[in-house]
Nucleic acid binder design. Structure first.
Length: 595
RNA sequence: GGUCCGGUAGCUCAGCUGGAUAGAGCAGCAGCCUUCUAAGCUGCUGGCCGCGCGUUCGAAUCGCGCCCGGAUCACCA
């Protein structure tokens, strides 16, 4: 809040005192360390060269200037090269004027081109797992953060609904399905299809073992196994629009979508637009042949088409197979173009795991070769893998944590813990069920989002269901406390609406600590947007909750004899509560009124 | 081998656009509920910030070299 003002005035001071212009960004302004008297600290070492005076003297001169020319500065104290400024209580109290503004810290929506943000991007042959959860949470949160920074965000999902892997589960279903449906089996659609994908692999494994016994290598055996050949036949039928094949494909996919929809709903994520690879790959093919015509790509004797990136330090990259079918890159070229056609976005963000860094590097370079203006608008938000304590979180190795199971377990744990604590004795069943969901999902989401996206993270199931300390439920609890305090205040006859805070009050250390954290919120939102990091919001809201709890524990609110102070503390509480709620909403986490 | 990312307390993570004695949580130990919700609060224990050199008044933070871990470099997606 006051940072910009202080920085600007410091520049003015340096210019007036020493005759040199400096940029506000170059002012080293930070929160004063806790043990030291002061609110904000300016590091003056960088100005010593300009002032040609000792650090202490420089700091004192700037401090003097600021305290005379800025009414907000109450006093200053110099320690070595550090100028510690204390702001007036009135200045801090003015912060509370924004306590009822639900948009505090957010920027209004700007009239500009939209940002297209892709996340989730599932395969239709297997249910969502822990890795997808990180992806979905990051994508959803990022959309909220960018929106809070004034961007018009369009959330899109790209469903990978075609290709050989889909044909595999189709084949297994044709062989072993007996017309089983989600209804007849009692399985969620995506789990049902996942089951057949696994069955295909079992069939293939058996055949591969036989072939290897006959002397084939593993690779040959895989390619020549009868089920694999059958699956490829299905793919060819699909591409030639064979009615029966398409019909089965449609039916099986529709089951999967029902399942996904449920998982997304449970997770609390949504999309403005869903793209299907089956609808975009043809456009990709067009782009490739266009590039071939213009001599940008090359065709080999076997008919395959390649982009040559060797002069850029990379290799050659396949764009179209020799049999004319498309690869991953073909499809992504198509979707990028389609997205550009649909929205003309100022940027296209892809939330995709870091194992695809190379892919996106190539995608951008190929688009540059095609002279697509939007190539520079593509941004890959690359996030790290989720690892499990035993080993890696890879779908092939079997140690998969299913998204639905995980959410279920978190909610169940929330329920038992909450019941043990006797928190819901006076709740209706419906209220209680809502609360268990809120807490269980809050724990899960916070646990995942508090880690810097670009880092690999460890998902320890035991730690994730801990509700104490740096966790989602801790923050939710702080919010519930504040709400409780508010309703008690109402019962005691204190009317918050329309009651102004006495601006002549003096504030104590605990009160100021909370307000210092509150004051940072707008900058944190901005920073999280620039760095595209929900973790910054998560770490901030934890600090706020911790600070508020200290205040709550040490400072009486309703038992304070001085009524004007009661109103002050209620105002601080209200503002802290609103910011907790805002922050959590940026993470896609709900907060309960009671818990 | 090339490229990219990481290495901070027993564990999980902040801090990294250089600044004061490196911060949290968990785990461990000791306390605080007849007072606004104890999913809370207080205190203690615990660190050659991977290693070395350099830049600087000042380096966990920047640069170079090395060591360790991960990802990636498919006619898979």
């Amino acid at each position: 809040m006051f940072e910009q003002k202080l920085a600007a005035k410091t520049c003015e001071a340096v210019f007036k005192l020493y005759g040199k212009e400096i940029l506000p960004d170059s002012v080293g302004l930070e929160k004063t360390k806790k043990e030291i008297e002061g609110d904000y600290t300016i590091v003056v070492f960088p100005f010593v060269k300009i002032s040609r005076k000792a650090p202490e003297i420089t700091a004192a001169e700037i401090g003097e200037y600021l305290s005379i020319n800025l009414s907000e500065v109450k006093s200053y104290k110099v320690i070595k090269g550090f100028l510690n400024l204390t702001l007036t209580d009135r200045c801090w109290l003015s912060l509370l004027e924004s306590r009822r503004n639900p948009e505090f810290g957010f920027s209004p929506l700007r009239k500009e081109l939209p940002v297209v943000l892709e996340y989730s991007s599932p395969n239709t042959n297997k249910p969502l797992h822990l890795g997808h959860i990180r992806n979905n949470l990051l994508g959803f949160s990022l959309a909220a953060i960018l929106r809070a920074n004034g961007h018009h965000v369009i959330k899109v999902n790209l469903v990978n609904d075609r290709g050989i892997h889909i044909c595999k589960s189709m084949l297994a279903y044709m062989k072993l399905g007996n017309n089983e449906t989600p209804v007849s089996s009692g399985l969620k659609g995506d789990h049902l299809i996942g089951k057949y994908y696994v069955l295909f692999n079992d069939l293939q494994k058996a055949e591969v073992a036989d072939l290897k016994a006959k002397g084939l290598t593993a690779e040959e055996a895989e390619k020549q196994s009868p089920v694999m050949l059958e699956a490829q036949e299905i793919l060819r039928k699909w591409e030639s629009r064979d009615a029966e094949t398409i019909e089965l494909w449609r039916r099986m996919n529709s089951w999967v979508y029902e399942g996904f929809e449920q998982t997304y709903k449970n997770l609390g994520v949504d999309f403005d637009r869903i793209y299907y690879e089956s609808e975009t790959y043809l456009l990709g093919k067009e782009l490739v042949s266009e590039g071939l015509e213009h001599g940008i790509f090359t065709k080999r004797s076997d008919g395959s088409i390649w982009a040559d990136l060797r002069d850029e330090g990379l290799d050659e990259k396949l764009l179209l197979r020799s049999d004319g079918t498309s690869v991953y890159m073909t499809q992504d070229l198509g979707t990028a173009q389609l997205r550009f056609n649909d929205f003309h976005p100022s940027s296209m963000i892809y939330v995709v795991g870091n194992e695809q860094n190379y892919h996106f590097d190539v995608l951008k370079r190929v688009l540059v070769k095609l002279r697509k203006s939007y190539s520079s608008h593509i941004f890959h938000l690359s996030y790290g893998m989720v690892e499990l304590p035993e080993g890696k979180m890879k779908s092939r190795e079997g140690t998969v944590v299913d998204a639905d199971d995980l959410m279920e377990e978190m909610i169940t744990t929330a329920e038992s813990t909450t019941r043990e604590l006797g928190k819901v004795n006076d709740f209706s069943d419906e209220e209680a069920t809502d609360l268990f969901r809120t807490i269980g999902l809050g724990a899960l989401k916070y646990f995942i989002l508090k880690v810097d996206p670009k880092k690999n993270m460890l998902f320890d199931p035991v730690e994730s269901i801990d509700f104490n300390g740096n966790t989602g439920p801790f923050i939710q609890y702080t919010y519930a406390r504040i709400r409780s305090l508010r309703s008690r205040a109402g019962e005691a006859g204190y009317h918050l609406a329309g009651t102004a805070v006495d601006e002549n009050l003096t504030i104590n250390a605990r009160e100021k600590e909370v307000m210092r954290v509150i004051a940072q919120f707008p900058l944190v939102v901005k920073q999280a947007g620039l760095e595209m990091s929900p973790a910054l919001i998560a770490n901030y809201v934890y600090e706020l909750a911790r600070e508020y709890n200290q205040f709550y524990q040490e400072v009486p609110v309703l038992k304070e004899p001085d009524t004007s102070k009661i109103y002050l503390r209620l105002a601080i509480s209200e503002m802290a509560g609103n910011i907790i709620k805002s922050s959590m909403s940026l993470l896609g986490i709900e907060v309960p009124d009671r818990m």
